[in-house]
Amino acid sequence: TGEEYIAVGDFTAQQVGDLTFKKGEILLAIEKKPDGWWIAKDAKGNEGLVPRTYLEPYS
């Protein structure tokens, strides 16, 4: 299990392996990579890379 984050903006996948999401979606951070791209999972179970700058902790 990971930590929940809320998307603060829309993001469209730029390449294969990225995860597209919309502002307000809750994402589960699976792995926090030091380069600023995290592996996350959305509510539908889709998994991919997301930019850290689009996420804020969800409580």
Rank of each mutant, 00 (worst) to 15 (best):
T1S: 13
T1E: 13
T1Y: 14
G2V: 12
G2C: 13
G2I: 12
E3K: 09
E3S: 10
E3Y: 10
E3M: 13
E3W: 12
E4F: 15
E4S: 13
E4Q: 15
Y5V: 03
Y5R: 01
Y5F: 10
Y5I: 01
Y5T: 00
Y5W: 11
Y5A: 00
I6D: 00
I6Q: 06
I6Y: 07
I6M: 08
I6P: 00
A7N: 01
A7G: 04
A7S: 07
A7F: 02
A7L: 02
V8A: 06
V8I: 15
V8N: 10
V8E: 02
V8Q: 07
V8W: 05
V8Y: 04
V8H: 05
V8G: 04
V8P: 01
G9R: 15
G9K: 15
G9L: 15
G9F: 15
D10V: 02
D10W: 05
D10M: 03
D10Y: 05
D10S: 10
F11A: 02
F11W: 14
F11S: 02
F11N: 02
F11L: 05
F11C: 05
T12N: 10
T12F: 13
T12A: 09
T12V: 11
T12P: 06
T12E: 11
T12H: 11
A13W: 04
A13Y: 03
A13I: 03
A13M: 06
A13R: 07
A13K: 06
Q14D: 07
Q14K: 12
Q14A: 10
Q14S: 11
Q14W: 11
Q14G: 09
Q15L: 09
Q15A: 12
Q15T: 11
Q15Y: 09
Q15D: 09
V16F: 11
V16M: 11
V16Y: 11
G17I: 04
G17C: 06
G17T: 07
G17S: 06
G17V: 04
D18S: 11
D18A: 13
D18W: 15
D18N: 11
L19M: 06
L19N: 00
L19H: 01
L19R: 02
T20G: 12
T20E: 07
T20D: 07
T20R: 04
T20S: 15
T20W: 04
T20P: 10
F21D: 01
F21V: 09
F21C: 05
K22S: 08
K23M: 08
K23H: 06
K23I: 08
K23T: 09
K23C: 11
G24F: 05
G24C: 07
G24V: 01
G24K: 02
G24N: 06
G24H: 05
G24I: 02
E25Q: 13
E25R: 00
I26G: 01
I26W: 07
I26L: 09
L27N: 00
L27E: 01
L27I: 08
L27M: 07
L28S: 07
L28C: 10
L28R: 10
L28D: 02
A29K: 03
A29I: 15
A29S: 06
A29T: 08
A29C: 15
A29M: 13
A29E: 02
A29W: 03
I30E: 02
I30P: 00
I30D: 00
I30Q: 04
I30R: 04
E31A: 11
E31I: 12
E31P: 03
K32E: 07
K33C: 12
K33M: 10
K33R: 15
K33V: 06
K33Q: 09
K33A: 09
P34M: 10
P34T: 11
P34H: 11
D35R: 03
D35E: 07
D35K: 03
G36W: 03
G36S: 04
G36V: 03
G36Y: 05
G36Q: 05
G36E: 06
W37A: 05
W38D: 01
W38Y: 06
W38F: 07
W38Q: 02
W38M: 08
W38I: 07
I39W: 13
I39V: 13
I39S: 06
I39R: 10
I39H: 09
I39Y: 12
I39Q: 06
I39F: 11
A40K: 00
A40L: 09
A40D: 01
A40G: 05
A40W: 03
K41N: 03
K41C: 08
K41D: 01
K41Q: 11
K41M: 12
K41H: 07
D42Y: 00
D42E: 01
D42V: 02
D42S: 05
D42P: 00
D42N: 13
D42H: 02
D42A: 02
A43I: 10
A43D: 09
A43T: 12
A43N: 10
K44W: 15
K44M: 13
K44I: 09
K44H: 14
G45W: 02
G45R: 02
G45T: 01
G45H: 04
G45I: 01
G45F: 03
G45D: 05
G45Y: 02
N46E: 08
N46I: 08
N46L: 07
N46S: 08
N46W: 06
E47F: 14
E47R: 10
E47L: 14
E47D: 06
E47C: 14
E47K: 12
G48R: 00
G48A: 02
G48V: 03
G48Q: 01
G48Y: 03
G48L: 02
G48E: 02
L49W: 13
L49G: 07
L49C: 12
V50P: 03
V50Y: 01
V50E: 02
V50W: 01
P51Y: 13
P51M: 09
P51E: 08
P51I: 05
P51A: 06
R52M: 15
R52L: 13
R52G: 15
R52F: 14
R52A: 15
R52P: 15
T53I: 14
T53R: 13
T53S: 15
T53W: 15
T53M: 12
T53F: 11
T53V: 13
T53L: 12
Y54H: 14
Y54F: 13
Y54D: 05
L55G: 00
L55I: 08
L55P: 01
L55D: 02
E56A: 12
P57I: 09
P57W: 07
P57F: 08
P57M: 08
P57E: 09
P57T: 07
Y58A: 08
S59P: 12
S59Y: 13
S59R: 12
S59I: 14
